[in-house]
């Protein structure tokens, strides 16, 4: 299922300056993720997993090195260009769902479509399709506070899918869920990868969760310690 390179990190360094100290998170890191891959990223707390996702998703920039996506440089884009790039190419799924509490499920899912030129009818159609896909069609008018964690995460997945991005980035998507619900969510992600060809990078602490991925990368002290490439 995996094809040509979707994301390529070359010699990426990331440093934070905190007062007098400079913290180096990554030092000349390289990584290639083919289109259609499903990568689990594991590693101890503070190893830079979230920082890696931020770089892949274009919400943070490397201190050095280059990041290419679909053959185009991402690290050289301006803040405004990056915002547009994210809207088109990346769906984000967070540990704590991060839905808008003031909006119903349907409107939460519709949110990214405000950045497109789709008309009312097309937006409605897409929102309904996305909610059906995650099995929440009948919950369209419910607010986040009226839904369970698993349901909220499914709304978040629908929101991440709505503008049909190639890449899904998930930061501990099941970290707040029980085993059964976590398995449902993970199965859904695997389905999105296998059936819809979404490239997924998922950070997780849970070895069970990692089993849903095609391969697992172990990150420690800013380096990948072991690579399990699935044939």
């Amino acid at each position: 299922m995996t094809g040509q390179t979707l994301i390529h990190l070359q010699d990426v360094s990331k440093r934070f300056v905190k007062g007098k100290d400079t913290i180096t998170i990554f030092d000349h890191l390289g990584l290639s993720i083919p289109a259609g891959d499903f990568v689990a990223v594991m590693g101890p707390s503070g190893s830079g997993k979230t920082t890696l996702l931020n770089l892949l998703g274009g919400i943070d920039q490397p201190t050095e090195g280059s990041i290419t996506f679909d053959g185009g440089r991402v690290d050289t884009l301006t803040e405004g260009q990056l915002a547009r790039w994210r809207a088109h190419n990346v769906g984000f799924i967070f540990q704590f769902y991060n839905l808008m509490p003031t909006l119903s499920a349907a409107r939460n899912v519709e949110l990214p479509l405000l950045l497109t030129s789709f008309g009312r009818a097309e937006r409605k159609r897409r929102v309904e399709a996305a909610l059906s896909l995650v099995g929440l069609a009948e919950r369209a008018d419910h607010y986040p506070r009226e839904m369970s964690g698993g349901q909220q995460q499914r709304v978040a997945i629908a929101r991440a899918l709505i503008s049909d991005p190639k890449l899904l980035l998930c930061d501990e998507p099941t970290g707040d869920l029980d085993r059964t619900t976590a398995d449902e969510i993970l199965a859904m992600l695997r389905l999105l990868n296998q059936e819809m060809g979404k490239t997924i990078v998922m950070v997780t602490h849970d070895p069970e969760a990692a089993k849903y991925a095609r391969r697992t990368l172990h990150l420690d002290k800013g380096r990948f310690t072991e690579r399990e490439l699935v044939a």
Partner: peptide
């Protein structure tokens, strides 16, 4: 929430 909106690509 504002950070999330920005993440989604809201300028």
């Amino acid at each position: 929430e504002i950070a999330v909106l920005k993440t989604l690509g809201f300028p």
